[in-house]
Amino acid sequence: MSIVVESVSKRFGDFVALNDVSLNVRDGSLTALLGPSGGGKSTLLRVIAGLEQPDSGRVLIAGEDATAKPPQRRDVGFVFQHYAAFKHMTVAKNVAFGLSIRKRGKEEIEARVDELLKLVHLDGFAHRYPSQLSGGQRQRMALARALAVQPRVLLLDEPFGALDATVRKELRAWLRRLHDEVQVTTVFVTHDQEEAMEVAEQIVVLNHGDIEQVGTPRDLYEKPSNEFVMRFVGPVSELSGRWIRPHDVGILVEPTDGTSEAQIDRIVHLGFEVRVELSLGDGDSTWVQTTRTMVEELELAEGQIVWLRLEAEPVSV
C-alpha cells in the first residue's frame, strides 16, 4: 500500500526533528530513509507507524488518513534496531503474537508460524528463547513476527545497526530478496549510504529535519541536489575549486590541455582500488580513486610529478 506524508512537523522541546516534511512512497516499493543521526529519519518512521504523534501534518496509508489512528490499527509491521524480542516467549510464540491477538485458530497460527520461520530460515528454532539466538537470528525472528499479520506496510528502524559487518551484509541481500518475494511496501531507516544504495529502490535523504533529496540510488550519486547529498552518498574530492567524485579524475604522466600539475604524496592500496593522495601546485591537496592496473601501467610512485584531468563532467550542485 502507498504511504503519503503531508507537511509533517515534529518537535521535541526546542529540537526540530521534522520540519514540514512531505513524501510519497509508492505501493510495493522499497525505500530507504538515509541521513546522519538526529536528522529526523527515525522520527519520520515512527510517525508513519503511529509510535509518535506529529505536531502538524497528515499521514495517509493506502489513501486513508491514518494520522489519528493508534499503532494497533495502522496495519504496519515495525522492526526495531535492538529487535524488541519478547524475551519471555519462545521464537514460535513471538512470531504467533500478532495472530493470537487477532484470535486466529490454533492450526492456522501453527501453519503460518511454520511458513514464516522457513521464510526467515529459522525453522528448527521454534522452541528456543530469544536469549539463545544470535543478533542476526533475533532480527530475522522480529521480521517474521512483523510479517505474520500480513501488514500493509513494513517499517524497519536501523534493522542491521546492531549487527556485525558480515551478518549485516548477508541480511541486506536477504532483505532485498525477501522484498521481491513478499512485495510489501517497505521503508527502512539507515545512516549507512552503502546499505541504502545496495538495498533500496528509492532513497530519501534527511538532514536537520528536512528532506534534502528523493531519488534512485543512481540519481543521488550522479545528480545530487546539493553539497550535503553529494558528500553523504559517496566520496568527494576537490579539483580547481570544484567538487568531484574522486574516480572522475584521470592521472597523466605528461601534461596536456586543461590539466593541473600535482605531486603524489601517498599511494594507498585497498585491494583492487587504489587511493592516490596528491598536493596541487597551489598548496591544496586532493585525492584520486584509481585501480591497481592503472598504477602499475603508469608506474606511479610517491614523490612523482603527475598531471590531473577531469574525465567526467563535474557533478552540478
Partner: peptide, 18 residues
C-alpha cells in the same frame, strides 16, 4: 524493561491491557 517490546506489541495490534 525494554519499552520497545511494548511498542512492538502495540504495532502488532495489542491494546494497553493486553
Amino acid at each position: 524493561l525494554d519499552r520497545e517490546m511494548e511498542q512492538a506489541a502495540e504495532s502488532l495490534g495489542a491494546g494497553k491491557a493486553t
